[in-house]
Design a protein around this nucleic acid. Structure first.
Length: 772
DNA sequence: CTCATATCGATTTTT
DNA sequence: TCGATATGAG
């Protein structure tokens, strides 16, 4: 058995697999066969006679969990399926339901997602009379989540904020406190609660801790670099007796610190477990040597990392190429040309290509371009199935049927479809409920007493009756039946049908898809087919990626979503200072390093060809900005372009100036694309390849920004002496020409192109310019 | 209560 | 730029 399991492994992989006792950390670089090692290690444990029920494997995503589960049971048929493989959240949800009675918890709690969380925060903000404009819901909800990630109670947050004199923190702590009360009152938990309450339960109930420690003698954690503090403590608790904990991860691929992930968990593992064994997986099976060395070279600029170097035996036939574009359309067109010409020649399939970008907004240009050039594409990520309004509506009905005290769901569906119960009615009722310490549901019978007029009160009652009508179905009936009854009896479907717009048709399709998903749930999920089981399942599961959807298509996605995937050809786009690395992160070492890791993740997805793309000009929020090429291009070993870039920019401006600045921009938008497409026949494919791997690299100074003046939008004549094209003189910068202009009066800002080639954005009021 | 217009504001998003 | 939300008239 041992031989069978190790014969296809390299020496370090085998070492990791065979090390079964005591703490073990596996540093698994990109493409080094991590999943293989984990699954083989579990198989090996089982072959040694370890009972499958005492092995626990934790991952972050359902996708990873089901993949692992499948591979384990393939490896050890029959026994493998009993290994507990699940996500942190799913494990904790099961734990809390199972042990609910012991920790005085309602086992029928609901799970709130981020949208629900924000909705509760909104209620809190209103109730506490806090200015919604100063405190944005998502920031507050985020801060509360971060606190839970760090096992901080409202009181902890308050105390910390107090001593730091952090006014914002003090306010959020108040919101957090109320927020928590509301969740408890509604028997709901957010994602953070699942972990935090599990940890608390284990800490407070020694008999529970002892039981689970005994139960799970062998623990494995995947993507350990992404664990937050709460998850870290959770593992530490469970592994506290036998110390048979094996964590796998790659510090170079830690890109979720903004969601509470603490990279120190992986960096300090050997401090936490002094007798820990450590294995590095460095042989890469994915990429060509050129791509690997380039990626290595970039990530080497990071300080907070454990030194490792990926190598490969793959043939050296790949390439890393920098693609320079004039604007974001040009960027997309060049990529489209490359993809199209290769696909046309049958050198590659569309599905061999992936386009990665830093922000979702960038996908738009690619969509437009690909659609025009008939390149099939699939966007991964943006809007998740269960986040769609119509799906959330139907689910809210289910939640309400399951637990009528769920205020969030109540408010969501009370007037969908319209029942003539408006904002004021709900508000009055909610205030009344608040006062009497009831849920909104419980206060429905007192609607008139609460001050509602007859119409709404009656509507409310019949709505309540509608929900009550499910009381028998909810315990015994099939979920599918409930859903169907909900959408027909509530007339939700009827209203959508009446709308009869393209949007409403899509919504109906989505609802139909939901029904078939429910059907699938009932047919293929033997464990818990109840409404409760279904709600838990979907709360913790985003839509399973349907593989056939990306078949034969170019994949478009953010760099974050690219983690864990691989493609023959990868385009990393928008490699510009300010976009990637993004915003201010260039000025903060920690943030810059995370951006760099993201770059590393992107680069190491490529098997054969990697393209680094940047554009000299880019439209952001409707304004054109000029960025410097990203430092990551230089760090990847491409020669310092800053000098040339500067030259470029001067040329750019001179050209614009001589042709009339505004015209050029407008033309390049509406006609430039057309021209590009006119040449879009197979023969003339030729992307401008600017630099290929050359020697030196250096650092580039951060780029300036120039914005197009609003003058196109409001051509009203102004009275100031400063006009576009006016020659002026500045005491320091010398002579120049006004090329841009925005604002009025005291706010009048000018962009002046000086004879030196330099341009500056100046406030007219203080710039001390003289007309010449 | 509902529909139409202003206003704001905008990373990344495993569960 | 464009989309999601807040405000106001009917």
């Amino acid at each position: 058995m041992k031989e069978m399991l190790t014969k296809n492994l390299n020496p370090s992989q085998a070492e990791a697999v065979l090390c079964t006792e005591g703490p073990l950390i596996i540093f698994a670089g990109a493409g080094t066969g991590k999943t293989r090692v984990i699954t083989h290690r579990i198989a090996y444990l089982l072959s040694l006679g370890v009972v499958s029920q005492s092995v626990l494997a934790v991952t972050f995503t359902n996708k990873a969990a089901s993949e692992m589960k499948k591979r384990i049971s393939d490896l050890i048929p029959g026994v493998g399926v009993n290994v507990w493989v699940s996500t942190f959240h799913s494990f904790c949800a099961h734990f809390l339901r199972a042990e609910a009675s012991r920790i005085s918890l309602n086992p029928y709690f609901l799970i709130y997602d981020f949208i629900d969380q924000k909705s509760v925060v909104k209620d809190c903000v209103k109730e506490l009379n806090i200015d919604e404009k100063k405190f944005k819901l998502s920031i507050i909800a985020d801060k509360i989540s971060r606190a839970k990630d760090n096992l901080k109670f409202p009181s902890d947050m308050a105390a910390e904020a107090e001593s730091a004199g952090d006014f914002f923190g003090i306010t959020v702590a108040k919101i957090y406190e109320l927020y928590q009360k509301k969740l408890e009152r509604a028997d709901a938990m957010d994602f953070g609660d699942l972990i935090m309450r599990t940890v608390s339960a284990l800490q407070r109930h020694s008999e529970l801790l002892e039981y689970y420690r005994e139960k799970y003698k062998y623990i494995m954690v995947d993507e350990y670099q992404d664990t937050n503090h709460a998850q870290y403590i959770f593992i530490k608790l469970l592994a506290g007796k036998y110390h048979n904990v094996c964590v796998v991860g790659d510090d170079d691929q830690s890109v979720y610190s903004w969601r509470g992930a603490d990279i120190n968990n992986i960096l300090d593992f050997e401090k936490d477990y002094p007798n820990a064994k450590s294995v590095k997986l460095e042989q890469n099976y994915r990429s060509t040597p050129k791509i690997l060395s380039t990626a290595n070279q970039v990530v080497k600029y990071n300080n907070a990392r454990i030194s490792k170097r990926l190598w490969t035996q793959n043939p050296d036939n790949g390439s890393v190429t920098v693609l320079k574009a004039v604007n974001e359309n040009d960027e997309a067109v060049k990529i489209a040309e490359l993809i199209y010409s290769n696909a046309y020649d049958n050198k590659c399939k569309f599905s061999d290509y992936a386009v990665f970008y830093r922000t979702n907004a960038q996908s738009r240009t690619f969509e437009d371009t690909f659609r025009l050039s008939r390149i099939p594409y699939a966007i991964v990520g943006t809007l998740r199935f269960y986040d769609r309004a119509e799906i959330k509506d139907v689910i809210a009905y289910l939640k309400l049927i399951y637990n009528p005290n769920d205020n969030v769901s109540f408010k969501r569906v009370i007037n969908i479809p319209r029942r003539g119960i408006g904002k004021t009615s709900i508000e009055t009722l909610e205030n009344f409920a608040q006062l009497k310490n009831m849920s909104i549901w419980q206060s429905v019978p007192f609607a008139q007493e609460a001050g509602l007029t007859k119409g709404p009160a009656e509507a409310l009652n019949s709505f309540a009756q509608f929900i009550k009508d499910f009381s028998t179905l909810k315990n015994s009936g099939s979920v599918k039946l409930i859903v169907e009854k909900v959408i027909t009896d509530s007339e939700y479907l009827k209203e959508l049908e009446a709308e009869n717009t393209p949007e409403s048709k899509i919504k109906i399709e989505n609802i139909q898809e939901l029904i078939s998903a429910v059907d699938d749930f009932e047919k293929n999920r033997s464990l818990d087919k109840s409404l409760a089981g279904y709600l838990t399942q979907i709360a913790l599961m985003n839509d399973a990626d349907s593989p056939d959807e990306s078949k034969g298509k170019v994949t478009l996605m953010t760099l974050h979503l690219a983690k864990g995937l691989e493609f023959d050809n990868v385009f990393i786009c928008g490699l510009e200072e300010g976009l990637f690395p993004m915003g201010e992160s260039a000025f903060n070492d920690k943030e810059l390093e995370e951006e760099r890791r993201l770059m590393y993740v992107g680069m190491t997805r490529a098997r054969k060809c990697l393209y680094l793309c940047w554009s000299t000009e880019r439209k952001v929020y409707g304004k054109i900005i000029w960025n410097m090429p990203s430092r990551f291009i230089a760090e990847a070993g491409f020669k310092d372009e800053s000098a040339e870039m500067e030259q470029n920019r001067k040329q750019n401006f001179q050209n614009r100036l001589s042709q009339g600045f505004n015209r050029t921009i407008i033309h390049s938008d509406s006609f430039g694309r057309e021209q590009n497409f006119r040449s879009f026949n197979k023969k003339s494919f030729k992307a401008e390849i600017v630099y290929t791997n050359a020697g030196s690299y250096g650092y580039m100074s951060s780029g300036g920004e120039i914005t197009k003046a609003e003058r196109f939008d409001n051509p009203a004549e102004d009275l100031s002496p400063y006009k576009i094209g006016t020659a002026v003189s500045h005491p320091v910068f010398g002579r120049g020409k006004i090329i841009e202009k925005s604002g009025v009066g005291n706010d009048l800002k000018l962009v002046v192109l000086f004879e030196t080639g330099q341009w500056k954005k100046l406030l007219a009021r203080i710039a001390n310019l003289t007309l010449i």
